[in-house]
Amino acid sequence: MKTVISYHPISEKEIHNWYYNMDFSLISDDVNYSMIKTARAEKMDDESLKKYIKTMKQAVKTDSNAVFDSTHGFFIATIQNYFRQSFIVNVSFSRLIEQKEYFKEYTKPWEEILEKAGDFTFLNSLTTDTPSSGIYIPLEKVVELLKDYNGNLIVKKDIDDFFGQSNAKAFIESLNYAKENNTGLLEANGILKLELSIENDKNETLSKPTKAIDESQGLKDDPKSEVAAEKENKEKKSLFSRVFGSK
């Protein structure tokens, strides 16, 4: 399977409600009523709820001085898939900014999104060597970028030339979806995948995009014993209480 770049419609309020403002000191519990209540309010199915809880339990193990984009940013993009659809585009807006710096004006850094930054390092860009989140386009900039794409020939040409025809179409579709649902758009890699299917033992064709969250890097079961894991969880509870606080 080939790892691709994806775009995840999620609002700043949802980033807080679904993830950042969760009481991390309670997430290691077998039953977390706050997550269940949040998931049920969004009509999440049982299988997605199990994945949501599993992902959040993995997030608890993140060090407070880690790179945010390859840890919490990645987990935020991951859980978005359990709430609503996301889009495979396979071209990075982060890389477009490296060539056309003015596109950075359409993004918002994590430092301005989060209520408290802790000791994290923020890249606000997609990493190439590890799965991570990338840039975040807030709702007001989603609207502005769509307006400029449709009304500014330079913006349209730069996006079309860099993304290519089919990927530019998919990217604009993700922006339109975000606008219609009043969300921003979070870039990520290492979450969604294209599966290869083999026909007639020889001809390989790409199947439709499918979610492969459980097989993503960083979401594997912890091999530690239950005793060791419980000890680690208690230490993490104290750590994340300091970083995130209790809600």
Rank of each mutant, 00 (worst) to 15 (best):
N81I: 01
N81Y: 03
Y82C: 12
F83M: 02
F83R: 03
F83Y: 09
R84D: 13
Q85D: 13
S86M: 00
F87G: 02
F87D: 03
F87I: 02
F87N: 03
F87P: 04
I88E: 11
I88Q: 10
I88R: 05
V89L: 01
N90V: 06
N90F: 08
V91Q: 14
V91K: 14
S92F: 08
S92D: 09
S92E: 12
F93R: 02
F93T: 06
F93A: 02
F93S: 01
S94Q: 10
S94G: 10
L96Q: 07
L96I: 06
I97D: 03
E98T: 08
Q99H: 15
Q99E: 15
Q99K: 15
Q99P: 04
K100T: 08
E101C: 09
E101G: 09
E101Q: 15
E101P: 11
Y102N: 10
F103C: 06
F103Y: 09
F103V: 04
E105S: 15
E105G: 11
T107L: 06
T107W: 02
T107P: 04
K108Q: 07
K108L: 11
P109D: 08
W110G: 04
W110S: 02
E111Y: 00
E111M: 04
E111V: 01
E111W: 00
E112C: 01
I113Q: 00
I113P: 01
I113R: 00
I113V: 05
E115F: 12
E115K: 13
E115N: 14
K116M: 12
A117M: 14
G118S: 07
G118T: 08
F120P: 05
T121R: 11
T121A: 11
F122K: 03
F122E: 07
L123G: 10
L123R: 13
L123C: 11
N124F: 06
N124Y: 05
S125H: 13
L126G: 05
L126E: 07
L126A: 04
T127E: 12
T127M: 14
D129P: 04
D129R: 14
T130Q: 15
T130D: 12
T130H: 13
S132Q: 03
S132D: 08
S132W: 03
G134Y: 06
G134M: 04
I135F: 09
Y136D: 00
Y136Q: 00
Y136S: 07
I137Q: 08
I137K: 05
I137A: 07
I137L: 08
P138R: 00
L139V: 09
L139C: 10
L139N: 13
E140G: 01
E140P: 01
E140L: 08
V142E: 02
V142C: 11
V143F: 10
V143N: 14
V143P: 06
V143H: 14
E144N: 12
E144G: 10
L145K: 12
L145E: 06
L146S: 05
L146F: 05
K147L: 11
D148K: 04
Y149D: 06
Y149I: 09
N150A: 15
N150S: 15
N150F: 10
G151W: 09
N152V: 07
N152P: 09
N152I: 07
N152D: 14
L153T: 15
L153A: 13
L153R: 14
L153C: 04
I154C: 00
V155K: 07
V155S: 03
K156V: 00
K156E: 07
K156R: 13
K156L: 01
K157F: 14
K157W: 08
